[in-house]
Simulated scan of single mutants.
Amino acid sequence: MKTQDKINFDRIAAAIKFIKENFKQQPSLEEIATYVNLSPFHFQRLFSDWAGTSPKRFLQFVSINYAKKLLKQDQATLFETAMETGLSGTSRLHDLFVNIEGMTPGEYKNGGENLNINYNFAESPFGHIIVASTAVGICHLAFYKEESTALKTLQSHFPNACYKHITDLAHQEALFIFNHDWSKLNQIKLHLRGTDFQLKVWETLLKIPMGQLSSYGQIAQQLQNQKASRAVGTAIGSNPVAFLIPCHRVIQASGALGGYHWGLDRKTAIIAWEASKMYVGDD
């Protein structure tokens, strides 16, 4: 490691430690930059390059992780959580949760209470699938090896929801797409929960045509943020609806497949299967 790189690495490591130890004081960009002896502008750029996110965003992640732990305690009110996290009030706590978690702190605390979710297990050309829906649309679709583990993963997202093991029309329409008309994909309704950035990434993925591939950098460019490739990769890795939101169509600029939450062998098979559909048609 070059000398300057080592200096920069140590500065960012010190800044991360400072943020983690002082997040309850909600330090400003200027305060953190001063701590590591840099100008705010230089520190902002350096931190984003090394950490893959901005200092403000990292502070928000640290803060919300702490707030989530507090909210899991039944006796913790929203006001108490906001104060203990170093926020000025419940409105800032609300904005933080909506921005990062895609839900209000109250919705996080009740864990999906009063939400009815239908789920079922099915087979696809690429393995076992669990599919789940609300009254709005498909909220979860994932490949799995064991039913019990797949169900626990679904329930971890909405721990207090009411679950019913049943196939509904939304499931049938979603699974129909594996074997029939791809032109009606936009008619499948989705019920997605995520940050504004995640939703924008997932929406962009939906625009990648079947049989075609895109890179993380190209997705970032479409979002008009060419430096956001890492953040794009993180958002893609958080995709809650496999296949329908085609994160498998995103690869590295070098041509390497990159990662895939449900396994690279499966990603390879899906890409090849879609390519064959484009050439021979859907018989």
Rank of each mutant, 00 (worst) to 15 (best):
L213S: 15
S214W: 03
S214Y: 08
S214E: 10
S215F: 08
Y216E: 14
G217A: 14
G217V: 14
I219H: 04
A220N: 13
Q224D: 11
N225C: 10
N225Q: 11
Q226G: 11
Q226R: 09
K227R: 06
K227Q: 09
A228S: 10
A228L: 07
S229N: 12
S229A: 13
R230M: 15
R230E: 12
A231T: 03
A231Q: 13
V232I: 09
V232E: 11
G233A: 06
G233K: 07
T234W: 10
T234L: 13
T234C: 13
A235V: 04
I236P: 02
I236G: 05
G237D: 06
S238K: 03
S238M: 09
S238D: 07
N239S: 08
N239E: 06
N239R: 01
P240Q: 01
P240I: 06
V241S: 00
V241Y: 00
A242T: 05
F243E: 04
F243W: 12
L244Q: 03
I245Q: 01
P246Q: 06
P246I: 08
H248F: 07
R249Y: 07
R249F: 06
R249K: 01
R249L: 10
V250D: 03
V250M: 04
Q252D: 05
Q252Y: 01
A253M: 07
A253W: 03
S254E: 03
S254F: 02
A256C: 02
L257R: 02
G258R: 00
G259H: 00
G259V: 00
H261R: 02
H261T: 05
W262K: 00
W262F: 05
G263F: 11
L264R: 04
D265Y: 02
R266H: 13
K267Y: 01
A269G: 08
A269W: 02
I270M: 15
I270L: 15
I271M: 06
I271D: 01
